[in-house]
Simulated assay, not measured.
Amino acid sequence: MILRVSTPAAGRRPAVLVAAVLAALLGLTACTGSGGGGQTAQGETAPPGQSAKVAVEPAEGAGDIAPRDPVSVTVSDGTIAEIALTNPEGEQVEGELSEDRSSWTIGEPLGYGKTYTWSGSAEGTDGTTVPIEGTFTTVTPSATSGVKSNVGDDNTYGVAMPIALTFDAPVEDRAAVEKALHVETDPEIEGSWAWLDQGRAVHWRPKEYWRPHTEVSVRAELYGVHLGGGVYGDNDLTVAFSIGREQIVRADTQEHRMAVYRDGEQVGDYPASFGLESDPGRVTRSGIHVVMSKHPTYFMNNPGYGYEDFEVQWAVRISNNGEFTHSAPWSVADQGNRNVSHGCINLAPADAKAYFDSALQGDPVEITGSSEPLQPRDGLYHDWIYSWEEWRSMSALNG
């Protein structure tokens, strides 16, 4: 027997399919429930919005805030709508708002002894507005101390030139000062700060002479820094300078000669007369001196030895104790033979002029052979009398 299976007519299939789709949709609707009440696709209730929470630093009403202390506003559960920090004169302080508008950070140091006021608002995730408000007061120093530099912008110096920062008064918190000092060099070179002049000056020198043609930049971010004892920094300081060619003088008091080397080659060798050795007050000091200044004409004064306003030509100062190289036509016969000066290096006029023309502030003058060494009491610059280990130990951060 043959069984016949009947099939629905073609025109009835769409009705069956529509019924199935409707059933599925009704079933889905039954699973998700009705659409009110902030529920998620999984049926969970969405968390309600939050009111913005504002945190200010320093705290409301804080006092004795240093001009460089952290100052900021941070908002959680919301964003900063508007913000300003103003000084007593109504001027706004510079600052930076983060990309997500959740924080604002100060962008400049504050003034001394001033009350600063916050204003503005934050908007929470619930859409409500919360004020940003409050005040704080900066410290009033017992005194301020300024700082100045021995090197100047765009100048060129010799390979022994130290960086010397001098303060108006001795510094108590020397570590705080060093943390605010920055030296950058190209190429990089090892160096360190050291405190001199009973804490009134801090010098930076490389471990060895500078490499010729080094580029140097110095930043002293000292305004607002507590220097100790209620004294605060009065100013910042920045300077950029260059190191020139290498020129080194090597002078031997026993050989009575002064030789000049430039970039490793000898370019001068002059007969000289140094300080009279029988008088400790006139002996030329042994050690590494540094060229400090040059004067086509200079008037020497030493009342203790009976002369004032004594005129010399082509004078190059190499220490603060009265040591120069200069023209000395009166001692030409002694130059190369005997030491008769009052501590200076006497040269013939033509030799003195030749050296004067070549000398650069910061050039080293290495003197050997005398009975008296260069010492701190001889003044600037005696930086190179110390070994590298001694120099580093004179840093407040390394000592």
Results as ranks from 00 to 15, higher is better:
283 V>W: 00
248 I>W: 07
230 G>I: 08
267 V>A: 06
236 D>W: 14
285 R>A: 12
270 Y>E: 11
265 E>Q: 13
289 H>K: 01
297 T>L: 06
267 V>D: 09
287 G>L: 00
239 V>D: 06
233 G>L: 06
292 M>V: 09
240 A>W: 10
272 A>S: 14
264 G>Q: 04
257 R>V: 12
263 D>M: 02
279 D>P: 06
291 V>Y: 00
237 L>M: 11
282 R>K: 15
266 Q>T: 06
247 Q>W: 07
283 V>D: 01
273 S>H: 11
266 Q>C: 03
248 I>P: 04
285 R>E: 05
240 A>K: 15
239 V>L: 04
238 T>N: 15
274 F>C: 11
280 P>C: 04
265 E>C: 02
263 D>L: 01
286 S>Q: 06
230 G>V: 08
244 G>C: 07
291 V>N: 00
268 G>F: 06
273 S>I: 12
300 M>G: 06
278 S>A: 14
254 Q>T: 14
292 M>E: 11
246 E>P: 11
279 D>Y: 13
272 A>D: 10
239 V>M: 02
300 M>L: 13
239 V>W: 02
267 V>Y: 04
287 G>K: 01
232 Y>T: 08
268 G>C: 02
248 I>F: 06
253 T>V: 12
274 F>P: 10
271 P>G: 07
283 V>T: 09
249 V>Y: 10
258 M>T: 11
294 K>T: 03
259 A>F: 04
301 N>K: 05
246 E>Y: 08
255 E>D: 14
236 D>K: 13
243 I>W: 05
268 G>S: 09
294 K>C: 00
243 I>F: 06
269 D>T: 02
300 M>D: 05
256 H>T: 04
244 G>W: 08
288 I>K: 03
279 D>A: 13
268 G>V: 00
294 K>I: 00
287 G>Y: 00
285 R>W: 04
284 T>D: 04
293 S>E: 04
287 G>I: 01
287 G>N: 01
249 V>K: 04
247 Q>V: 13
270 Y>F: 15
276 L>Y: 15
270 Y>T: 05
294 K>P: 00
240 A>C: 11
248 I>N: 03
238 T>I: 13
245 R>W: 14
297 T>I: 11
283 V>Q: 12
286 S>W: 01
274 F>L: 09
295 H>Q: 12
232 Y>V: 07
251 A>S: 15
254 Q>M: 12
233 G>E: 08
289 H>M: 02
265 E>K: 14
291 V>R: 01
241 F>L: 08
238 T>V: 15
298 Y>V: 06
278 S>D: 13
259 A>V: 09
288 I>D: 02
289 H>Y: 01
251 A>L: 12
244 G>Q: 08
296 P>I: 02
252 D>S: 14
238 T>H: 14
